[in-house]
Design a protein around this nucleic acid. Structure first.
Lengths: 133, 133
DNA sequence: TATTGTTATACTCTATAACTATA
DNA sequence: TATAGTTATAGAGTATAACAATA
């Protein structure tokens, strides 16, 4: 049972999380220990914003800062046991939600839907890239 | 040419708009003059937040507050000529973007994509409703 | 009593700019 | 010189709570 809507807001609040902090936890779960500038790029925010989010997550005992082997300027953000457990739960929830949403589709319909969506996304990306030129 | 990405951020900035203010302009364009509590519900924010957004849009000469005929507690938020022009531009952009994204799809593929998407959305809504119970 | 919108207050998020340490 | 991350500062957005006017 993966939570969404008001339910998710409540669950995040109980964990001392906010949407932005949860997004960082999610990215870190997908990428493993990374320096902060990687998170800044992934989340499309400034390094300053990452500093604040990591500060909050350290205070919640979800992540820690560790030295980066090979670059003493950088700090590796890594999960605490509690943070790793949370990230694993998020991934389980994502997989279960995907099953709920897509498993009921007949294979043929799922195939067509997937191709159609890929086309829409490709045209959207092209449109954005053209505008940025 | 409807703007997205960094381009949109730039264009919004030139209009003195922010994403939240643009969302209110969009809702108002879809609904016509409405009291603030309707916008609060539509945008899923508190009445306090709407007060601040409307204040900013009034300062930008995009909307005005008018008395609500029939309920003297309420204020109707209405477009200024400049705001109405902006809302019309947003709607034209939305329509053009929809053509860019969907017109290239063969009718059969579009049909299948639309049915698949409707199913996914229905299951997502059911999932959220079940969790909120 | 309930609803509409406001003021008061506080917190989160984010940006820009200046800075330190390191590459 | 360039990069990683921090501190300082400021602004937008939002929530909660208390309030006034009206229903």
């Amino acid at each position: 049972m993966f939570l969404l809507g008001d339910d998710a807001d409540r669950a995040l609040g109980e964990l001392g999380l906010t949407p932005s902090r949860a997004a960082l936890v999610w990215e870190l779960g997908q990428r493993g220990p990374v320096p902060q500038h990687v998170l800044a790029t992934a989340l499309r925010v400034t390094p300053r914003a990452v500093t604040g989010l990591v500060d909050a997550l350290v205070a919640s005992d979800l992540v820690t800062r560790a030295p980066h082997p090979g670059d003493r300027r950088a700090t590796l953000v890594t999960f605490t046991p509690r943070g790793a457990e949370l990230a694993a739960g998020l991934e389980r929830g994502r997989a279960e939600l995907a099953r709920t949403l897509f498993a009921p589709m007949p294979a043929e319909e799922l195939d067509c839907f997937g191709r159609g969506l890929a086309g829409v996304i490709a045209r959207l990306r092209a449109h954005i890239a053209a505008g940025a030129a």
